[in-house]
């Protein structure tokens, strides 16, 4: 019997059935099936920043996720969180510390703002940690490929068909 563990996880917007239909429509494979789910860890930060606009500086809030396995940062749309008991076999674990994650988040947000707003200025970024949060990815097996579907955004990425 598999063990379960309580984690903070993003509320699912795309169910296993949605992921299945999505992958089936992409590949045309009506026999596609959901193989499993993966619970992926991120450090989550609420970033409050001051950005220049035509009508003076404005405070904006952004969400920044830092991949706890690869250490990559990205800004993200806000999502709802909940506590859920998940199968430990589905749970991936990262070895990154929260101090490193905070540094990456700060760097990610300042770079992102500079690039998007095309300006050289300070943004006075302040980060509020939400701690470790998780996202569920559905793994759908089709005859042509294995597809990983993000349960919060519906984005997907192909995986190899079989294990190497």
């Amino acid at each position: 019997m598999s063990e379960r563990e309580h984690v903070i996880i993003a509320r699912t917007s795309f169910s296993a059935t949605d992921a299945l239909c999505f992958a089936a429509s992409l590949t045309g494979d009506i026999e596609a099936k959901v193989e499993s789910d993966i619970i992926y860890p991120y450090y989550c930060f609420d970033a409050t920043c001051s950005v220049p606009t035509m009508v003076g500086r404005k405070k904006v809030s952004l969400l920044c996720l830092v991949d706890a396995i690869n250490g990559l940062g990205a800004t993200a749309d806000n999502f709802e969180l909940k506590s859920e008991a998940v199968d430990t076999k589905s749970l991936l674990r990262g070895d990154m510390g929260d101090t490193d994650a905070r540094e990456i988040a700060h760097r990610t947000v300042t770079h992102h703002l500079g690039r998007k707003l095309r300006t050289i200025t300070t943004f006075d970024v302040s980060l509020q940690a939400r701690g470790l949060v998780h996202k569920r990815f559905w793994i759908v097996q089709t005859s042509e490929a294995r597809v990983m579907v993000d349960s919060t955004t519906g984005g997907f990425h192909p995986l190899k068909l079989r294990a190497a």
Partner: peptide, 25 residues
């Protein structure tokens, strides 16, 4: 994207998930 992955999947996939995909793989 070495492997038998159809081109139409690659064209519409989300590149921001590449790192997660590698870890999941």
């Amino acid at each position: 994207a070495i492997g038998p992955i159809p081109k139409r999947l690659l064209a519409t996939s989300d590149p921001t998930l590449a790192a997660e995909a590698a870890a999941v793989q």
